[in-house]
Design a protein around this nucleic acid. Sequence first.
DNA 1: AATCCCCGCAACCGCACACTC
DNA 2: AGAGTGTGCGGTTGCGGGGAT
Length: 343
Amino acid sequence: MGRSPCCDENGLKKGPWTPEEDEKLVQYIQKHGHGSWRALPKLAGLNRCGKSCRLRWTNYLRPDIKRGNFSQEEEQTILHLHSVLGNKWSAIASHLPGRTDNEIKNFWNTHLKKKLIQMGFDPMTHQPRTDLVSTLPYLLALVNMTDLMDPHDQAVKLQAEAVQMAKLQYLNSLLQSTTTSLNPTTNSSDQNGLITNMETINMLNSMANLKENPDMMNYPQQLNNNNNHPGSFSHHGIATQPLHHPNMLLSQMSSDPPQVPFSSQSCLNSDQYQGQVTNFTMISQGGHQHTTPDHDESSSILPLSMPLLVGDATSSSTSHGGISSSSYWPELFFEDSIMHELS
DNA sequence: AATCCCCGCAACCGCACACTC
DNA sequence: AGAGTGTGCGGTTGCGGGGAT
């Protein structure tokens, strides 16, 4: 069959619209309605194809278009609808008055998708990514953070726990993926070029330090004690919750400032921070998931999902003793090569 | 001040589907 | 039934602005 594109006809203008063209289009539609889009350009005195006119009208000139930044509520709506509908932009747009599918699509591609990826979520499935590459950025962020923090701060203690778990997780993954021996004299990169054997040794050393500081292992009991989620388990008295729980995801995505207290100065002053450690999904080497009542560091079970501390979306801005909205997101610590891999 | 680079967004493109003749 | 048309949708492109160097 085959059908020539509507804009193939010679002489039809393409590209950005001028104010004069906009004016013509608006005036014509206000007077006559759009009717047949194919016929409209001639009738309106425009040297454009009908398709171009329709797009210009629906995405830009329509009087009920809402312009400007997306609100947090809109952002949450998009996230939720996308998790249900996928890339059905027009369907999503129908739930957001004044927003066009094109606008939502652009917002998704330029903001929300990146946010999800950087948080370790698969933007298509809205589930945590369990591959090593996706979890590494968080590990690096956590390691960088706790190096700067007051070790007596409650939130920092929690963070330290997450870091140690993350280190262990990363080590396990690394040891699984690399075929090189742990020889500190070689200091060679692993197959991904992301870490050296010397770094591995350093990590092991820092974990040994943790065991020499049992104070770091005393955690508050007032944390979320809901252990009903599938896949949850208690670790050292800390109730856990799957990171991909929808409410948690939305909470993490929408809150500004972020719930993770990456501002070291703010954390030093914080005595009210209440957070929760997300779950450590235990995946055996055979790929089977486990709900583990307690974490056994010596077991062959590999923790492959990413631990994170998250706060309450609504109270985080006030309960951190003045945590600023310029708190750091983890990507500040990311290696370029990792970001390239993630994108 | 000039140039480069990145990012966001408007617009384009191709495809699919419904409908008409 | 099949060709042609109109419209909508989702993916992609490329321009322009702004920040970095």
